[in-house]
Design a protein around this nucleic acid. Sequence first.
DNA 1: CGGAACATTGACGATAATCAAAGCGAGTGG
DNA 2: CCACTCGCTTTGATTATCGTCAATGTTCCG
Lengths: 247, 247
Amino acid sequence: MSNPFVQRLEGLACLGEADVRTLEDLCKNPRDVGSKRYIFRESSGASSFPVIISGWAARHQILRNGGRQITRLMLPGDAYYFDATPDSPLHEEVITLSSCRFVQIPHACMERAIKACAPISTAMRNYGCMENAILSSMVVNIGRRDALERMAYLICELHLRLEMIDGAVRDDEFAFPLTQDDMADVLGLTPVHINRKLQQLRQNDIISLRSKRMKILDLPKLRQIAGFNSAYLTQGHSEPHREMVAA
Amino acid sequence: MSNPFVQRLEGLACLGEADVRTLEDLCKNPRDVGSKRYIFRESSGASSFPVIISGWAARHQILRNGGRQITRLMLPGDAYYFDATPDSPLHEEVITLSSCRFVQIPHACMERAIKACAPISTAMRNYGCMENAILSSMVVNIGRRDALERMAYLICELHLRLEMIDGAVRDDEFAFPLTQDDMADVLGLTPVHINRKLQQLRQNDIISLRSKRMKILDLPKLRQIAGFNSAYLTQGHSEPHREMVAA
DNA sequence: CGGAACATTGACGATAATCAAAGCGAGTGG
DNA sequence: CCACTCGCTTTGATTATCGTCAATGTTCCG
């Protein structure tokens, strides 16, 4: 199976054979770690950045009151590529949410690759834009949707992102390593509340989630709750999830 | 006064004289518009992107229930530069929040500049990373801080961003064109709630805000409430704003 | 002067947080 | 193989932050 990071970049710019080889060179010597391991710690002068090959990870920040917010779920092919010359200290850390295989790419090597290959430069720029778009949608999700909508949206987003990875989704079913605590920290809610809303989705036969496997039973309804999908948005102002059974 | 966009990019990469000239060429023919005008509408095939020269603007999304979330406040020098070849439709629009001067840069021209000048390419890549960092901090802010903390954080962030622009801040005082409705849509709250929390900050002599001018009276306390500032974060787990007078 | 947009206030309601306890399930060690 | 533990999930009761609704005030502008 080919490298998901390379595949990702191929989707973001037109790469030549030489570019692909250059990237694959950067991804040699992957490492394996277990769940809940830090693979990037706050340290401004970090000289390399992690790229996820398999498994899930997350970027998060810890607040002074002990609160935690995950800012980005990292799926296979995702990288924590940041400003190569950061003045501002990075508050974010990267932690694995499942067993993971990942590579550490030295910044200097990536810089070299970017200088040498224009398509790689374009791909990385576009990667930043894509991350940006996902972050924007997270802001909207957390800022303006209620708990049920948020959760539905998250599931829709993950479903879509996973579909773009070889063999990650089959019959709308996929591995889902997040604990309810993790989901709470993604969505800005409490674990207890997550639990209750999950059950609401389950009882309405919209999803099933057991032993770290998620199956979407009713994708249209899930998307409707989430207000996902541009098609839905442009269909005019249809009503939110009124027809759902009350909890 | 020099162009704030060029200054911004100069802060993000080391530009040569030729690069600066190229960028200044891109910024010819600015346009002026009044407040609450769209300067970028949802339209996937947009051929140019806006750059703010003076005034404030915002990227936002409108939800199907009429809700609105601002995902990014755009200050002078900020651009809405997105993926040059977007497959996914853009849901975001850019609206001015005050009278604005801005330029529209054709994507093709920016592409050409990026191809021709490596430093510009680097600067734009870093610009994306910087936006990313701001968006991450917005996610944390909205996801895990209460209303008062959120507002304090927003003010701190804007103060810091404005300080980097020539003449925008003087004695911790600056133009602040946001209405309370705008602030609500930035912070994921309601206007009524914004109003009450603003008063809390005013009554504690932390800020003053009158006729679109913000003055920070007690920056340390404001930052303390917000949990801003890495210095503060690393000072150990000090207590949140307990000493504040209850509303 | 009149109107519109924006800000302020109060009363009430609802969503989500908090606290606390019990249940479940997978892996570990005796 | 069973008891035990640990992490995670589930449940109930209670609290509080924030939202909603509605009315009044204020400021700005033509």
